[in-house]
Design a protein around this nucleic acid. Structure first.
Length: 296
DNA sequence: CTCGATCCCTGGACGC
DNA sequence: TGCGTCCAGGGATCGA
């Protein structure tokens, strides 16, 4: 499942592999995950892929302006979200096409940039000018480009659960389930804890650990849980370094307590009940306890 | 503002 | 071997 480190890996590979390539033609298969398929077919042929960037969990293929507007400096880009099972990989034309290949972009050097996505949870969109900048503004802070102070301020100003905040792309762009759980475990914070209730020191710790984990994961080319493949079609290796994610029923790496899985913000959340204690309700616990005793 | 529920989609795991 | 069933999960959307 591609999150920030996986998308960063693919974006860097593609930057090396296809930046500067001209788009000769575009062939679409199933296109229900594309914002406006006709627009892609009209706009992409003839453009040059200037560079490939990561933006949150999106890849941004920055494009040259259309020939008719070469003098106007309107930004345009192809946005690609890999969803759960997407892959964007340059291949020789002679390579057989994988099942679920939905977009094929013929490049000037003769190769094909192929988008493969069995579940089609991904998204693709051509955007330019105001609609592009407007779309990009929807998203929150990039965890690798934000200061600790800014992160702490944002998190502590919200009363949603910390897990929900980490996953909310309008708060923080790029973090998904794996890296949310991993950083919460490292910072010893329960996923259901409310953002506003966390101490400044805790959120600071969370930020440092999140950054460290993301950098490490990028170094190891991401986590491959089920389907993730980089732009060369190879898996990453960070999954071998997961401390809690996917480890329900196994001993905590710190204290040997059995790792649990609960649903927080509608997502599986793995945590250690000992290292990441349940959030305490403010004071009333004694009163509730006596009430219960009376009822019994 | 925040929540849960629901939908999208397919392949893999599991039970028989 | 081959069914059927359940489930995962990022994000959009809707109603509470």
């Amino acid at each position: 499942m591609p999150e920030l480190p996986e998308v960063e890996t693919v974006a860097r590979d593609l930057q090396k592999e296809i930046a500067g390539q001209n788009i000769v033609s575009l062939t679409l298969g199933k296109s229900d995950f594309i914002d406006n398929p006709g627009l892609l077919e009209r706009e992409l042929p003839g453009r040059t892929i200037l560079r490939v960037e990561r933006y949150g969990k999106f890849m941004l293929l920055r494009l040259s302006p259309p020939a008719s507007e070469a003098s106007i400096q309107t930004q345009s880009a192809l946005l690609v979200h890999l969803g759960m099972t997407g892959a964007l990989i340059p291949r020789a034309v002679s390579d057989p096409r994988a099942k679920h290949t939905h977009v094929v972009i013929l490049l000037g050097d003769g190769r094909e940039l192929r988008y493969v996505d069995p579940r089609r949870f991904g998204r693709m969109a051509y955007l330019s000018g105001d609609s592009l900048s407007k779309e990009l503004r929807r998203f929150g802070l990039d965890p690798l480009e934000t200061s600790k102070n800014e992160f702490v301020k944002q998190i502590r100003s919200r009363k949603a659960r910390i897990k929900a905040l980490l996953l909310d792309q309008t708060v923080l762009r790029g973090v998904g389930n794996i890296y949310a759980d991993e950083s919460l475990w490292k910072a010893r914070i329960h996923p259901a804890q409310l953002g506003a209730r966390l101490k400044e020191r805790q959120v600071g710790k969370l930020f440092s650990e999140l950054q460290r984990i993301l950098h490490n994961a990028i170094r190891l080319r991401g986590s491959s849980i089920s389907d993730f493949l980089d732009a060369e079609g190879l898996p990453g290796e960070y999954q071998q370094h997961h401390r809690v994610y996917g480890r329900e029923g196994k001993p905590c790496f710190r204290c040997k307590t059995v790792v649990r899985r609960i649903i927080v913000a509608g997502r599986s959340s793995y945590f250690c009940p000992n290292c990441q204690p349940v959030p305490r309700r403010r004071k009333h616990s004694a009163r509730i306890k006596s009430k219960k005793a009376k009822a019994a």
